[in-house]
Amino acid sequence: MANRPLRIIVAKAGLDGHDRGAKVIARALRDAGMEVIYTGLFQTPEQIVQTAIQEDADGIGLSILSGAHMTLFPLVTEQLKAQGADDIVFFGGGTIPPDDTEALKKAGVREIFTPGAPLSEIIEFVQRECGKRREKVG
C-alpha cells in the first residue's frame, strides 16, 4: 500500500463561491501525481471531515476567501478531533490576514497559504507532511 498515491480533499466551505484558487490547487496536486477529490462549493465542516474519513484521505486543503476563516477552520479542526481523525494533514489558504494565520496555526491548522504562494511550495508541503503521516499511520 505504501506506493498508493497520496489522496487529498480540496474543499470549499460556507457560502464562499471563489473557487479559482481551489481549482488551481486541485489541478496542481493532481498533476503532481496525487489523487484529488474536489468537494465542490458550500460544504459544511462536518461534510468535509466526513468526506475525508470516507475517502481515507491523507490531507484536507480548505480554501476560504469570504472572511469566514476564523469560524470555519476551527470547526474543521474540532470535527477532526471529535472523529479521532486529527492525524489528517489539514491546511488551507485564501484571503487571510497574517495575524489570523498565526492564530489558526495555533488552533491546529498545519499551514496557511496566502495569495501568491508558489504552487511548488504547496505541492512540496503536501508531499512532505502527508508522507510523514503515511509513515506514522501506514
Binding site: 460556507g14 457560502l15 464562499d16 458550500f42 469570504s66 472572511g67 469566514a68 476563516h69 476564523m70 469560524t71 470555519l72
Partner: peptide, 17 residues
C-alpha cells in the same frame, strides 16, 4: 455572503460570514 446567497443573518448557513 448570507445576503448574496439569500440567507438571514441568524441562519445556520450564515455562521462566520
Amino acid at each position: 455572503m448570507p445576503t448574496l446567497m439569500g440567507y438571514d443573518s441568524d441562519a445556520a448557513q450564515a455562521r462566520g460570514e
